[in-house]
Design a protein around this nucleic acid. Structure first.
Lengths: 353, 353
DNA sequence: ACTTATAATAAAACCGGTTTCAAAAAAAGC
DNA sequence: GCTTTTTTTGAAACCGGTTTTATTATAAGT
């Protein structure tokens, strides 16, 4: 089975050793512990390395040093702009530190998450960023056994205090959003939530409750709906809000921008004027929200920072073994960005037909 | 340097061999050439493998068989929705075939492209999907030397006939778009192009020219602008179109939807009514374009198919060595989707102030 | 029954590096 | 100048698999 055509394979450490007249151990040292080899030999070996344009095979290297230089990033769907910009900045910092990223989409399905996690362990990735666990997710337990560093970003599991993460202060965000609506005179405020059993949804809801309670307003069951963190989800539940009859809310706090935009779609379709008849506020501040024809008032989180910080954090955990056991938990502040979709409540009695 | 705490490391092929009372060669055969090992031993070994939950180390495996099971995907920016949905479906088919994807963003910079390509070669990826080469890009030449399969998707280099690719019929798309505007009575039609030296831009422009020539309309220099394939690009050049004075076009064919939406932004800002005063048509049909408040008329390409087909194609090239040298070139048909942003031209003389 | 072909397995070499250990060379000490 | 310490280097073992080659057991042929 000789290879056809004398294909010149990559130059290996043996080639270099032979050509430089040293052992391969020495070549390896020149690359990894240059101070341990004599000036003259080092130069000679280096010259050959340069001339032959030698680069060590990362696979072989990984096999012995047990570091692959790749990290796994698990999100539910990269075509969701939130994750897209997050992953973008993760990739950016990884590149700067010579790490590669394996991109994994789970579609929010636990089986896929399990599959990817065990598969990434098998592939010996150096670390994993988990971007969309459910509150009850257990799949990451295997990472603890395998002793592979991992962090959560944006969404957290139960017992968050035991893990590393970077996220935004969601309850504060929910509080800010709701307070803002209250400040505009609204009292009938709905919560349009995303996938229920996620920390981000629950935290934001927490903030919503807190603000209402402080204002002495009781939470009404009919005013809290939940669906999926997507435009379609927002549209579907949005229709139900719109058609909720003579007790319709005057404002809606949406758990994320995608849902808010879905709701806006529903409003446009049913000729409900925003913000005159219905105020809507979102969460995330995805690029889309700034668009002229949308101008969604929202609670902004710096998605890019989220990505950059989590990239930085996982690399830190990988390289600083000492820090491995020191919990790192960063929570970013949310910020209200006022645009066009919220207005002072009109008639005190509410504006229903 | 003994490892602290008796950490139980992954079970290796040696463990299995010992426990089953065979040589590691036999274990390997059980996994890779089961027919070459006797029924009884096979069963015995398999039992041990199951019981110990053994999975071969992919790194070690890759080292000898020279297949890593990962493919590189190079795009300019994953946060661009076009690439996001494309990569999404690439990842999906890869997962189905047990391949992993390395995600690489180049921001359209040739240095980054070069860096990634050589770096991916070094890492021994099995194949590469190039999602955003410039027409004059040469960086992929190294892939030919390294004999790593690669295909282009969406954007092509010069000499396209020599390479494998999957893309949409861009000149047909440009032709369709322009014909549609012509059919609405427009004669002053501008071309708002993206990054100039890309095949998609040039092809779409080609289609534009063809349609105009057929209609006996001369191409006017002032009517062809080019910027970047982004909202900002569309906005910036869009302003110039809007302010182009008494010879303003009545319709604009935008090289992609992002630019079209940027142009729409500019129109909204400058109070140019679309489609009454200006018709605009885009290209791509990204999810955003269907939004109620946008409803962009556009030339649709199935971005997901683009991704799925290219994923399929690269895997095919990797696994079917025979097919390696048979060029595969698939070009998908574009489709006009009429929404809201184009109208019959108003006053024959044009509607300028 | 005795070679001969064939199937099943083990031993060894290899993939391309790193690392331990021991030997050789150079520097230091007296 | 000779022993002792320190540097510098090479040989060998290892990482965890696959593959070639050699060996042994079994089946087939005459």
């Amino acid at each position: 089975m000789k290879r056809r055509r004398m294909k010149k394979d990559k130059v290996t450490i043996n080639d270099i050793a032979k050509e430089a007249g040293v052992s391969k151990a020495t070549v390896s040292r020149v690359l990894n512990n240059p101070e341990k080899v004599a000036e003259t030999t080092r130069k000679r070996v280096l010259e050959v390395i340069q001339r032959r344009n030698y680069r060590p095979n990362p696979l072989a290297r990984a096999l012995t040093v047990r570091k692959t230089g790749v990290i796994g990033v698990i999100v539910s769907d990269i075509s969701n702009p939130f994750y897209a910009v997050m992953v973008r900045s993760i990739e950016e910092v990884c590149r700067a530190y010579a790490y590669y990223v394996f991109l994994c989409n789970t579609d929010g399905r636990e089986e896929e998450e399990e599959f990817y996690i065990s598969s990434l362990i098998e592939r010996r990735v150096d670390g994993i960023i988990l971007g969309s666990v459910d509150l009850e997710s257990k799949s990451f337990k295997r990472l603890e056994e395998a002793e592979i560093p991992f962090i959560f970003v944006s969404r957290l599991p139960r017992d968050r205090e035991k893990y590393d993460y970077v996220m935004i202060d969601n309850v504060l965000g929910g509080y800010i959003a709701t307070r803002y609506l209250l400040s505009l005179g609204h009292t009938r405020i709905a919560y349009l939530g995303g996938r229920w059993n996620t920390s981000s949804n629950l935290d934001r809801f927490e903030g919503y409750k807190k603000a209402l309670q402080e204002a002495g307003i009781e939470i009404q069951k009919e005013y809290v709906l939940c669906g999926e963190f997507s435009m379609e989800g927002g549209y579907r539940e949005g229709l139900r809000i719109i058609e909720s009859g003579n007790n319709r809310p005057t404002a809606v706090f949406c758990a994320n921008d995608a849902m808010a935009i879905g709701l806006l779609e529903a409003c446009r379709e049913r000729k409900v004027r925003v913000p005159e008849e219905l105020s809507v506020i979102g969460f995330d501040d995805i690029p889309l929200s700034a668009l002229g024809c949308i101008q969604l008032t929202t609670v902004s989180q710096s998605i890019a920072s989220l990505g950059a910080l989590s990239g930085k954090m996982i690399i830190d955990k990988i390289t600083n073994v000492e820090k491995r056991n020191a919990k790192q938990q960063v929570v970013l502040p949310p910020k209200l960005v006022v645009r066009r979709t919220c207005a002072r409540v009109s008639g005190e009695g509410g504006g229903n037909p």
